[in-house]
Design a protein around this nucleic acid. Structure first.
Lengths: 193, 193, 193, 193
DNA sequence: CATGAATGAGAGTTCATTCAT
DNA sequence: GATGAATGAACTCTCATTCAT
């Protein structure tokens, strides 16, 4: 156990991720994965026993990747508004890149498994809200931002991001809507010079 | 002539609605509907030929119901903030009543049929945004509200509502989060006496 | 029994005949008949209990019709070759008018019920062979024809007719093939003047 | 690719052939094949996706078999009348061996697919007619046969064979009828010594 | 007589999962 | 480890047949 071919396991996971991104969670069958990977049916079962198991692993990797990617981008940045821009851009990419996004798959998965540990969606929200809150507080201290309730403002931003993500998944987010909303959100807290 | 028994058709639709509310769209099979209705396999096909057909009918009825329910509630109301409260309460009920909500089913459905006519989600967003914008404008005129950009404020509210809806579907919306957010949103525009 | 509406029974039979002519025997369902007739499911069962029952009745009528039609055409004809031409023309119409022919349906039916009484196909062959034999004999006596074995010649003609019929049913009889064959068959027995 | 077990594929085909021979084309279901083969439902679909696909393959093999069987029998034969006897005997076997004949199944199949490429019935007729024509010509040259129009004589023989085949399928060909007809056909062209 | 809603048996098809090689 | 043939459960859909009205 645990041994086998680590590289093959990783390969399967990578392919599975793209399948989930394209088709969501429920619609994906083990057969789909087998075919997308170009391996044998039995071969897949050697590594993963169900789409559920596969998906859990996919999102575990996803979390890791996101964490490290943010960390990298945040090195050497000092201004709060700059960090916020980095975060917003990263979410923008995530939200608008429908082809490559696991969002819908995760919505489907957690709709069926709401109590799941390591709830990546809940986690993403809380982490993001906390980050934004800190940034706003930092910005207020530095005189960049003005805001009476950084926590609530941060949460409002996060809700709006979630809203735009699901709307984009269902094809109901107009072009430019993301940018307009972001400009508006920032305009509410930025101190004009 | 689409006649058959109108009451039975309505009964099936009602049952189907609850099945979709409980299980989403993709996971529901005709067999599920048959069993939930307590009728025969062939009996269901007499009225509806697929889950898709059923679902489209369910949401058509849903739209009708919502429209008429809002209209009823809006009679005799004159203050903008009162109307806004009615709207918010109606959305609150919709969003938090997970057992009874078609939200997840609609997300799944439109994720697969993004270009669909009568896109109820897009429609709901646009209608709501327009309504809130008008209300804010009215409120500003009456001195109840203050707001520099009613359109953007309204859209932000709608995005936040969408965000809370999907978060609730996936079990990631904490209790009270809805109320806290609403209080915050209102606090931003309400003129304190 | 036997009473009901005779005209409706006849109407159903007429419609059923055209359905069998178009689709053969096996492929036809009671539902097809119901729809073609524009009556109710129960209504059809009031008169006929199965496609088999219907088909048997259809071919019973068919025999009657053919018998009487030949008789009519044969009145006042005296020359053997003229009568033969009438018979050949009547078979030509039957064989080539694919849209309206019950041939394929009958082949299917008797392939499943080879021992059936009132075997219309066997009957048609024997009757036709006997007729042609008599005609050839008559023609020989009158000096119109020459033929050493009227019986075998007649049977050969009948086999060829059957062969062309099934070939036409399956789309493998070329245009003009019927006429060429008939000219050849007649050329073998006609005495040139 | 299309590999799986070649022997099993062949086994299925062999069983399917006998089922088609017994029941025709339309009446045969995938379930029938499954049961006759003693394999699982899914197992059959691994190899063939429909009765149509199966049938097409069955007749493709049939053509191959017939071609090679004729070739084998024709080695070392020199007299035209001998070759003709071989052909007639091969058709006799085909026509009279009802249990084992695909004739009715092919009639049903092509009645539904008249325009089909590789129309085996049309082909069989044309090939047979051409062969008989050549043989008659050869025989005439050698003084074995006498015939004014080998082409038309050959076609007449083929039509008669077709006629007897369908009549046998439907149970309307009397015993000995085949032999009587053949004797007659040959008597018309054979030069008595 | 006539209707047509309702039933349930049965065919088609797909896939998760196992297992001999 | 890896393969892919094989199985059987589950789902979709159609129709012959019945029966209350």
């Amino acid at each position: 156990m645990g041994a086998k071919s680590e590289s093959k396991k990783a390969y399967i996971l990578e392919v599975a991720r793209s399948v989930f991104a394209e088709r969501g969670f429920k619609a994906v069958t083990m057969k789909d994965i087998v075919e997308a990977c170009g391996i044998s049916r039995g071969g897949l079962y050697l590594y993963y026993g169900s789409t559920r198991e596969l998906f859990l692993e996919v999102i575990r990797k996803e979390v890791e990747r996101n964490d490290s990617s943010m960390e990298k981008d945040l090195k050497d940045i000092v201004k709060a508004s700059d960090i916020m821009m980095v975060y917003i851009k990263s979410r923008k990419k995530e939200i608008l890149d429908k082809e490559n996004s696991l969002a819908m798959a995760m919505y489907e998965f957690y709709a069926e498994n709401p109590g799941s540990k390591k709830h990546i969606l809940r986690n993403r929200f809380e982490t993001g809200a906390k980050l934004l809150e800190k940034l706003i507080e930092m910005g207020v201290k530095e005189g960049e931002f003005r805001c009476e309730s950084p926590e609530l403002e941060a949460r409002n931003m996060m809700y709006a991001l979630e809203g735009m993500e699901i709307m984009n998944c269902t094809g109901s987010l107009p072009k430019n809507a993301f940018d307009r909303e972001m400009v508006y959100l920032l305009s509410r807290i930025i101190v004009e010079v």
